[in-house]
Nucleic acid binder design. Structure first.
Lengths: 122, 122, 122, 122
DNA sequence: GTGGTCTAGACCACC
DNA sequence: GTGGTCTAGACCACA
């Protein structure tokens, strides 16, 4: 599953797990319909409490990245659906990041260039 | 200063203050060398504890948006300096946001288009 | 028998089976005295463990929708009998649902109208 | 606050708390803008762990009955907003309840009458 | 074996 | 003092 937890990153563990799984979906390492490890198993693998993994799974579910099926398995969602809620949140955080760049003296052109670079690397 | 605090936004108050000031700098409403209200005054204006305002000011200072001068005044930093630390943070959060978009099925083209749109509006 | 199981509905499977059978009785597709498939057969048809089907059958029996006859067959109950227990449960859940509607700002008239609409469609 | 917890009801405690608060809002005992006790205080009052109360509060928040403001207080939501999601859930559970009544031999007229009665009492 | 729920104790960020 | 997060141990419903 290729998830790594960093003790010192400051990010809550459940966030890190969530982020890694989102990254895996984005990169195509987890395809639609893929079934994640059970919370208990992943917890054992990562050395964290299974409640923590569950937290991450529930978050992913509420964000629409996965669904929890009747057997409580966690399945990667067919992701053609982009909710308005997501777009709005995305907009807010992008806007804030752009403002930070501008406030630091970066020009709009530079910001665009940086974004394009990140996009290629993602 | 035109700072508005929202009780229900979920964001911590000190974050909101910090964000509004960054936005003001980005938009040019606060120019280099401008002096911010003292924490006590701004706190009174906004109806929040002055420790909270101080928190925001310290955050802004640590991010390089302002400097605390010898008289404890808070001065907007000449902002041609973009720290590597800032770039790195920016990169991290952008990368994560991009991954979220991809994981939701947005194409790179769409992401670029959305970013350009937000850039114009900021 | 026309029972469909949804993996992702969140409802336990035995509940889904129970609900579908209740719906069939309500719609007249299962008449008094009709004999249901054995738990094993229905389980095989639906691709679920027969214990799960048994669970549903026992629930239906305890609710008075079916009886388990001497040959262990499951027979649809002559349904003129409405137990007080059922009425009480019905009352409780209806009351809660009504309260939720009121708490969300729906008027009693609207609630009545909605109920009538659902009644026609059921 | 008039919340009573029953050990033997079978309902999870956090559900009971949630239900009681919804009932209080529906009955007008909790008006828009009212502030609930902190999770810790209510927990102490009811003799349950504060996490359990928090569960109830988060549930109420996700259902749109209350908002958690920036100071983490729990405030009763202005409830003119009825989400489609709520209506859909309401529809599903009503439909099922109606079917149960029909399967027990109750006529549509009787169901309507019962509903009206419950509505008056709520 | 799995997740849901509850309890409980700990540390931390925020106010 | 407050909730957020994490850990942990327990019981139960479900499959």
């Amino acid at each position: 599953m290729l998830i790594r937890i960093s003790e010192s990153s400051g990010k809550p563990i459940y966030q890190q797990i969530r982020d890694e799984i989102v990254a895996a979906i984005a990169a195509g390492r987890l395809e639609e319909g893929a079934v994640l490890l059970s919370a208990r198993k992943l917890g054992k693998e990562l050395g964290v409490n299974y409640h923590t993994v569950n937290n991450a799974y529930n978050l992913l579910s509420s964000e629409g990245f996965v669904v929890l099926d009747s057997k409580k398995r966690v399945v990667v969602e067919p992701h053609e659906l982009v909710t308005d809620e997501f777009k709005q949140k995305w907009r807010q955080s992008e806007t804030m990041k752009i403002r930070e760049g501008l406030a630091h003296g970066l020009s709009k052109g530079e910001l665009k260039r940086l974004f394009a670079k990140f996009l290629e690397e993602a």
